[in-house]
Design a binder for these strands. Structure first.
Lengths: 330, 330
DNA sequence: CTGTTAGCGCTTTCAA
DNA sequence: TTGAAAGCGCTAACAG
């Protein structure tokens, strides 16, 4: 291992000067700086990151805490984060909270212990976790979901409008008993999307019927059970809007099991794109989120916050796109 | 920040003793150890990981270098790694080489610079990268693909047998002109799976026809183009075996575009499970890999290697499962 | 079994 | 503008 002292000796300067040059402090004479850079390349020097971390009490790591690595929504997002982070010299730690507040809490503890530079998080339903994270961390950007109790930079999508567009589309296709399978009551995306659904019904002069609404868990089995329950309960839905991709898959499975055709007698629109939505037969109508963009934008906010810790918080809301395919077109 | 010295003072011992107790060295008197533990909890002490990292010249981080985060094969694998790693006190860095040897090289450099404790990698086609990684890293486990030139612990699946079973199944269903879309010539999974395909043909007394083989890139568009080329070339395939999930998707897209029915006139079997294989119509026959298990096993090998750097290398080969669904059944 | 001591390699005052 | 020196908090070699 060549150290900063080796470079210093080789260039005939002190270690402090080498440090200054390599960190881009402009206060060094150009001649010396040149000598230092030459020595560094000649010796193949690269600074010991661990020593730097200790000295600065901070790593060059980011953490992304998401609720499900298996959900393509998040993987695409992670790429967006990674692309920006790597550019700026950060490596990305992936943490998978699994929609489980305890697991989230343990990751937050780990993140604080590691002295991670910045955190991008899709928060679970426990606001205390977020409070602790924000308290102990240098920079936090919230994605996907809002947390009322804690203020941070955030990147969201226009959930309400997306849900409204999806529901309005189903209405316009002549469906009359449109069900909604949404996520946990405490998760903002679940409630916003439900609100959009409700708004579309109201706009169309329809009544909002709680018999047609199910609160589930954003998972495949949850969607499956919610759909079964809707069919068995006598609510007689002729269409369903599911507020995330996995629950949509679950709903489709139930419909297939029951031998119910799509889009007739039952129309389907899902929130979130499925990677192979075109291959599913009939092809699936979705409200698509700009997932990669969400990740990229969050990473950019994080970068800004790291540079400028005292700036006011920004919240960016990105638009969704309604992709009308065969599952809702009759 | 409470430091080890605070705890030492509080417990009336030296910092070294505190360190010993907290690291589980058994050479400390139980009375003292108890006092230390009491002091530590009372003060809410947690060791500074950055200092420990510097001192030990090693982080408590693992890196997983994979070729595509968007591929569900890898995300499930990452979970397996993460579950084991977290248990043992490691955090997992996710690196996305994107099937690009240059990107892989840059991640390897980063991993070495970070002094990552252990690396799990699905190597690209550039053996030099692996050589450099193995040279500079404490522990490396290879997954998914073999690299001839470099010896490491490894977790593989029985690609040849899986491919053979898939092809034999197509033969048994009465398909006579079975094509194979495989990956890059330099990637072992591509060649092993092709070998299995070939073996099945031989076993059935069929001739191996290179006109029915395409080397592609393990990506969706690659599979799409390869399928189109097969159809346009006059090779007249009546079935296709694609050697990974994304290329299978591509092939399905081409077949749909051309209005060719599945399983008639064209049968399809893919390697790797698709997350919603059941929803694709017709449902897709696949050779499934135990992805989560691959990750878990690799992590366990890594743990072992870290404990025991001089042990002989182990290579574990896990079995695949042929899931026969509608796309190949006529 | 325990304490003293000496760094790990870097950044950053502080003084020149 | 530069260098000397201190020290981030920890672990491990060594001595007792």
């Amino acid at each position: 291992m060549t150290t900063i002292h080796d470079v210093a000796r080789h260039a005939g300067v002190s270690a402090a000067t080498v440090s200054r040059v390599l960190n881009g402090h402009r206060t060094v004479d150009e001649t010396l700086a040149g000598r230092v850079r030459a020595a560094a390349t000649e010796l193949g020097y690269s600074p010991n990151i661990l020593a730097r971390n200790l000295r600065k009490s901070q790593t060059n790591l980011w953490a992304v805490i998401i609720s499900d690595v298996n959900n393509p929504f998040f993987t695409s997002l992670v790429r967006g984060v990674e692309d920006v982070g790597q550019q700026a010299g950060y490596s990305v730690l992936l943490c998978n909270s699994d929609e489980n507040p305890d697991k989230e809490a343990s990751y937050i503890t780990a993140v604080l212990a590691q002295q991670i530079a910045g955190v991008i998080i899709s928060p679970s339903s426990r606001p205390d976790n977020m409070a602790q994270l924000v308290e102990g961390s240098r920079a936090v950007v919230t994605i996907d979901r809002e947390v009322q109790e804690v203020e941070t930079d955030a990147v969201l999508v226009d959930n309400e409008r997306g849900a409204q567009a999806a529901t309005a589309h189903l209405i316009e296709q002549g469906y009359s008993r449109i069900a909604c399978i949404t996520g946990p009551r405490k998760v903002s995306t679940a409630t916003s999307r439900l609100r959009g659904y409700r708004q579309a019904l109201r706009d169309a002069g329809r009544t909002f019927d709680t018999n047609l609404v199910r609160y589930s868990d954003f998972r495949e089995t949850g969607g499956r059970e919610a759909m079964a329950d809707l069919l068995d309960s006598g609510a007689r839905p002729d269409a369903v809007f599911a507020t995330n991709n996995l629950m949509t898959v679950g709903a489709l499975e139930t419909l297939a099991e029951r031998g119910l055709g799509i889009p007739d007698p039952v129309g389907v629109v899902g929130f979130d794109e499925l990677p192979w939505a075109e291959l599913v037969r009939p092809s699936l109508s979705t409200v698509a989120q700009p997932t990669y963009e969400v990740g990229r934008t969050a990473a950019q906010l994080l970068l800004k916050r790291l540079e400028n810790p005292d700036e006011r918080f920004t919240v960016i809301t990105l638009p969704t796109t309604l992709n009308i395919r065969d599952s809702s077109r009759r």
